[in-house]
Design a protein around this nucleic acid. Sequence first.
DNA 1: CTGTTAGCGCGTTCAC
DNA 2: GTGAACGCGCTAACAG
Lengths: 343, 343
Amino acid sequence: MSERRKLTLKDIAKDLGISVSTASRALKAHPDIAQETIQMVKDYAAKHNYVPNIIAVNFRKSRTKNIGLIVPELVHHFFSTVISGSIDEAKKSGYNILVSQSNDFLADEIVACKTMMASSVDGLLISISNETYDGDHILEFIDEGKPVIQFDKILEKLPVPKVIVDDFEGGYSATKHLIDQGCKRIAHIAGRKDVLNACERMKGYKKALNDHQIPFKEEYIRYCESISEEEGEQFMEEFLALPNPPDAVFCITDLVALGVIKALKNKGISIPDQIAIVGFSNWKLAEIVSPSLTSIDQHGYQMGVVAVRMLIQKLEDKNFEIPDTLELKTRLVIRDSSVKVKA
Amino acid sequence: MSERRKLTLKDIAKDLGISVSTASRALKAHPDIAQETIQMVKDYAAKHNYVPNIIAVNFRKSRTKNIGLIVPELVHHFFSTVISGSIDEAKKSGYNILVSQSNDFLADEIVACKTMMASSVDGLLISISNETYDGDHILEFIDEGKPVIQFDKILEKLPVPKVIVDDFEGGYSATKHLIDQGCKRIAHIAGRKDVLNACERMKGYKKALNDHQIPFKEEYIRYCESISEEEGEQFMEEFLALPNPPDAVFCITDLVALGVIKALKNKGISIPDQIAIVGFSNWKLAEIVSPSLTSIDQHGYQMGVVAVRMLIQKLEDKNFEIPDTLELKTRLVIRDSSVKVKA
DNA sequence: CTGTTAGCGCGTTCAC
DNA sequence: GTGAACGCGCTAACAG
């Protein structure tokens, strides 16, 4: 049962009275090798349960078959979905995913990059932290000849391929959906102005208003700093204090929407009849909360799959050119929080 | 900036006119080497940004500094918390975590194990699937001299160290808390009878009842198959149909508790005044749902930290004996769903 | 068709 | 105090 030392090519070569290289080639069914030799070696290998020493193989080929994956937060529905997709896809090609998190701190992100670099991943997938405005630590990978792909939270100026969700379209369709429900005074609780995704959603929101002749009003806009439930609650209260409160709110994230819902419940305002709500990200909580929350799904799993697939393609074929930007479409998931008119 | 080929020991030996072995030893400040030589080499290395080729080092030492981590589900609050802890702790010692998921299928778990084995992780952390009743695929690691630690969902008969949460104590304290609130007819929506964690919680529940002279009644017990929200909802309805419905429910999991809450809301029954609820796991949703849910925290992060720490200790010191079972205490997190009497 | 040779980059005897 | 030499397990170029 427990073999002290694993069987090596050398062992099987010796036992079979052939050379190591013949054994090696036979196992790969190299065309030069005689059919019978191939059979013999393969049989022997199977019988003795030969497993090539991957560490040696990787050393020889100077690669690791490991892909680094850095996310801001691991314990986060969206990112764990992305990771899940990455892992499943990577597995198919025999790659492993090495996960690390930045906690949304630049310092941690840099450390994570260094660690990844040191442990010699073959390539990197990264979603940057909120503090990352400069990507030197990311470019180092490129310098070392290791391909990198950014996803979701990206640094636009970085000359590195990106897989993102079409936040603009998401913001647009969320807003349009509210308009379709007959809402006229649609507020938006936005993210930080310097975060790309947040800006795109805002742009989509504005465009939708514009396309439907609804004037954009600054009083219906709030900017989150930490994207928290508390902010949602507070901003909603501010909206309610307006002389002419909104009849709908599009929130940058489901968590913020949750705060909004809380505030409304506290005031006894009915959702969606008096005020309709749409979130973003389609977290687990969107279906759990009551009323269930209409949200924009970002296809996290798919994003993980796509990013990994492109990275591996590049890894296996140096000439493959990763498209500069790949935009995944969002999907509007309609639930109770926004549907004003039934039937 | 971009060095075509990385600097190797050989390069620096040649440039400095010394031998490779001297260079190697100097970098490690080997006592045999002259101080000045050490300085010279270190300076040179620092100046030229020498980074040892980890793949070669690992090959030489026949290890990877990678630790496999297999969980049933990646997109799951508890497990992502564990992963988060593992990664953070592993990083401290220069180890990487290689994550994989079984989707609660035995077949997938076996494949994941094979993959881990093939990619030569140095050791394995595993939380088994619901279908795993036999651990041959896990024992293979031991046979190969790779230490394994089970965590959370474990196979008890497997002679492999375990890090678990004290489910018995958790079940006990959840139940006792309800008793303390004055509840007399406490129901329990349990998990499958063949899942260890579920049984322990049940045992704790029974013990608490017994310690407080409350008779155990089979009519107040239901067993989940899939541990879903729907089951919680359905079972709660069944409870309500009883001639003498319970005044409290202890649920195997927060998700089930969510279903219970839904059922109660539908019937217009007030929580916690008419029926108090306690969940288990302390997911994010426990604080989000309304009323907020009292739950049992399992210290997932800590579990990841502890498991990794012990594995690494074993890895670095073959003589280290991992304790057979390490039980983490749970923590009762009291929220609105269970507190009957305020002040 | 097969064997010989030559490394990959590093660590580790064993001599000097 | 230092260097030469060997080998980890595997692949690949070159001979025959």
